[in-house]
């Protein structure tokens, strides 16, 4: 499946799960800030991706399971270098470049864009 085909299917998943319009779902759109996703929507999106692509998504595989955000990895509202390493290891489909210049824990949600989902599915299908 090409990246464009994956993107088209993900667009369907997101318009269905989040009730957004087609044209709102761009590669750089952030699930929470731009598309209005709330906590339960992440589970909904996981379920729908499993169904759409015939894949199995483990807990903490697509979205963080909270291990890097626990107190040991947080200092002054920012995730420590060790915590960032852990996040990068667990979430290889996410682009951390812009965020890690000022790794505020309150902005972790901004990392989850439509492109991150496409990367995730692409890696998963290639595995």
């Amino acid at each position: 499946m090409t990246r464009d085909e994956i993107f088209a299917k993900i667009k369907d998943v997101l318009t269905d799960a989040l009730g957004v319009d087609d044209d709102e779902v761009t590669g750089s759109a952030r699930l929470q800030a731009d598309l209005g996703a709330e906590s339960i929507d992440y589970l909904d999106i996981s379920f729908k991706l499993e169904q759409a692509f015939g894949i199995k998504i483990g807990q903490g595989e697509l979205f963080p399971d909270g291990s890097a955000q626990n107190a040991g990895f947080v200092k002054d509202g920012r995730i420590t270098p060790d915590g960032i390493d852990l996040l990068k290891k667990k979430l290889p489909h996410v682009d951390f470049a812009a965020w890690e210049k000022d790794p505020q824990i309150s902005k972790v949600a901004n990392l989850f864009t439509v492109d991150a989902l496409v990367n995730f599915v692409q890696r998963k299908l290639a595995a």
Binding site: I40, L43, D44, F47, E50, Q51, Q59
Partner: peptide
């Protein structure tokens, strides 16, 4: 039940 895991179900 359509889908179910350790955190919820649809």
């Amino acid at each position: 039940i359509e889908r179910m895991d350790a955190t919820g179900a649809s």
